[in-house]
């Protein structure tokens, strides 16, 4: 192996984004709940590699958007570490932080709210180039045209205002602006939730193509699990501020370990009358993150909870390469499988 190829591999093994022990709490005033705080994110670890699509799923209020805001630098974590390309973002110099903000870009659910209604779309797409003084004026103009081509907007749309565009076209403008500074990671919070099926298909195709062509990594926050299954490489399932399971998309959808993941998947209404939703329902609703339940946060709703679930917090257990979940019952089942295997192999050797 040559010196050069080794460095390439080493670089590649450093995740593009590494989140460690991330905590975000929002203080709340006295009143209904007394003083305290909303535990929106409570100790999250995750990694995203270049060109990878990681989806974050979970019911509303589980902390997905808050986590996304921390990752894009729009919100300051209460505790924990965020490393981008190996560098701690909080410890970075001012220039380093500006560089981070260029390389990580957000895309939001409602394209209308992220576009200035008075600006022609070319101005919106050009704005980041102006702000970061990228190239000459002529180069910026050329880059705007290039970006419009990239996201599939006809060039003659350049002088149009957002209200003259459809929802899908507006989302393309938002994505073009997010891509202007050649980011390496997009954090997309429900980017297709407000769109019609046919328009959603266009944006999903676009995201997929950008990932392939630009090796762009994506943190994709979504509640529609069929969209997640379509687009992701890996999935992280969040519940009340914690990631309860993470793994490769095929594994998560075909053989999830955590009961909450299973419940989410069972609730998908398939567009196939022959494939009915599972009859098993998750009862109740996500509790308040001001006073999360003791032990496993999911225990009040868990169909398979055991005694220790209400007192003892389950730790992450690795089930496979890159697949882990935090659940006492799943971990016990794994341990049992392990002991059966060891008994069997002992039997074979003796």
């Amino acid at each position: 192996m040559t010196e050069q190829s080794r460095t390439v591999i080493e670089q590649d093994s450093v995740p593009l984004l590494e989140v460690e022990g991330l905590v975000k709490r929002f203080p709340i005033r006295r009143g209904l709940f007394g003083s305290g705080s909303v535990h929106a994110v409570e100790g999250v670890d995750l990694q995203i590699h270049a060109g990878e699509v990681l989806s974050l799923v979970g019911e509303s209020g589980s902390g997905k958007s808050t986590l996304g805001m921390c990752v894009t630098g729009m919100s300051t974590p209460t505790a924990g570490r965020i490393r981008f390309a190996g560098e701690d973002v909080a410890l970075a110099s001012r220039r380093g932080r500006a560089d981070f903000r260029r390389r990580v870009q957000p895309v939001f659910q409602d394209p209308r709210s992220s576009l200035d209604p008075r600006w022609p779309i070319e101005t919106t797409i050009r704005e980041p180039l102006d702000a970061y003084r990228v190239g000459s004026s002529a180069e910026r103009t050329a880059r705007v045209a290039e970006l419009m081509d990239l996201v599939g907007l006809p060039r003659h749309f350049a002088p149009r205002q957002p209200r003259e565009l459809s929802g899908g076209q507006q989302q393309r403008v938002a994505i073009a602006a997010a891509l202007a500074l050649r980011p390496e990671l997009l954090v997309a919070d429900e980017p297709v939730s407000a769109l019609d099926v046919s328009v959603q298909a266009q944006i999903l195709n676009l995201l997929d193509e950008l990932r392939n062509r630009l090796k762009l990594a994506l943190l994709f926050i979504a509640h529609d699990l069929s969209v997640v299954e379509h687009l992701s490489d890996r999935v992280a399932v969040m519940y009340l501020g914690r990631i309860v399971e993470t793994g490769p998309v095929e594994r998560i959808f075909s053989a999830p370990e955590h009961p909450y993941t299973r419940a989410l998947i069972d609730a998908i209404p398939h567009a196939d009358p022959g494939r009915k939703m599972s009859r098993i329902r998750l009862t109740g609703e996500i509790p308040s993150p001001v006073n999360p339940p003791s032990g496993c946060r999911f225990h009040p709703r868990c169909p398979v909870a055991v005694d220790r679930c209400s007192t003892e917090e389950p730790q992450d257990t690795q089930f496979d390469e890159g697949h882990s979940a935090a659940c006492h019952v799943a971990a016990a089942a794994l341990a049992q499988r392990g002991s059966i295997i060891s008994v069997l192999s002992e039997g074979a050797t003796s």
């Binding site: 019911e59 509303s60 419940a263 609730a267 329902r281």
Partner: peptide, 11 residues
């Protein structure tokens, strides 16, 4: 609604 709650309401 969330998928989990949607499933309850559809039921």
């Amino acid at each position: 609604l969330d998928v989990t709650i949607q499933a309850q309401v559809l039921d």
